[in-house]
Amino acid sequence: MSNPILTLSHLTKRFDELLVLDDLSLTVHEGEVVVIVGPSGCGKSTLLRCMNALEEIQGGEIRLHGELVSKSSKNLTELRQKIGMVFQSYDLFPHLTVLENIVLAPMKVQKRSREDASKEAMALLARVGLEEKAASYPRQLSGGQKQRVAIVRALCMHPEILLFDEVTAALDPEMVREVLDVILRLADQGKTMLIVTHEMQFARAVADRIILLEAGRIQEEGTPEEFFDSPKTERAKKFLQTFTFERKRLEQPQSQN
C-alpha cells in the first residue's frame, strides 16, 4: 500500500487504574478508510482522542508523517490542523453563524483572508447541500445539518486525515443517512479517514479495512468482506451476532378445517 500517514505504536492509555488501550499498534495509509468497531466502552473514542492529543497517553507514541503527536509537542496546533476531527455531539460554536464557525480556524490559525476562507466554505457547504444555511445559527439547524456543518468545518482546514467519532450516534434515524452520504463521498474522493461507528452497513460500504477493538486491543482486522462474512475470531463472531436478530417462533398450530 502507499505511504503511511499516521502510525501508532504500542499505545497504552490508562484512566487511573483502568487500562483503556493496551499496547495498541496501528498504521493508517494515505487514502485509506479505516473503520473501528467494537462494543461500547472498548476504547474506540479514547483511541481517536489520543490521535488528536486530546488525551494524554501513558505509553507508546503517535506519529503523523513521522512527527510526534503529543500534548507536549511544540507544534501541536500545526499537527492538529492536519488531523481533522468530528465529534459525536457536533460541537459547533453556538455564538457563531454556520459560515463563521467554518472560517474561524482557517482565518485565525492559518491566517487566510476572510474572502478566501468564505469562498471555500461556501463551496464546501454547497457540496453538502447547506449553502442557504450559511447565515443561520447552529440552534436553527437539525442534528444532521449540524453534523454536516461540523464536517465542512473540519474539511476547510485541509486536514490530511479525518477522524470521525460516532458522528451519527446522537442523530435521529432519518438524519443518519444524510451524514453518512457525505462521508461516503469523501471516501470516493480518496480522503484518508478513521471512522468509529455503530452503523455496520455503512462500515461495510465505506471501509477499506475494519478493525474490531475490544478490551483495549485490536481483536481482529481485515477487509469488510473478511470481517463481516467470515470472521476469524470468536470475539468478532460474538460481536457481529449482536447485530443480527432472530426470533424463535413457536410452531403454528395447523388451522383446523
Binding site: 500545526e78 465529534f87 460541537d91 453556538p94 474561524l104 485565525k108
Partner: peptide, 28 residues
C-alpha cells in the same frame, strides 16, 4: 468541555480558544 476540545481540535491555541470561543459564550 467539548467546546474547548473542538476548538483545540481545529488547531486553535489556548489563547485563541479563550478569545474566540469560550469568552464570547461566557459573556452571553
Amino acid at each position: 468541555a467539548h467546546q474547548y476540545e473542538s476548538a483545540a481540535a481545529l488547531g486553535l491555541s489556548k489563547r485563541q480558544s479563550y478569545f474566540f470561543v469560550v469568552l464570547p459564550q461566557a459573556v452571553r
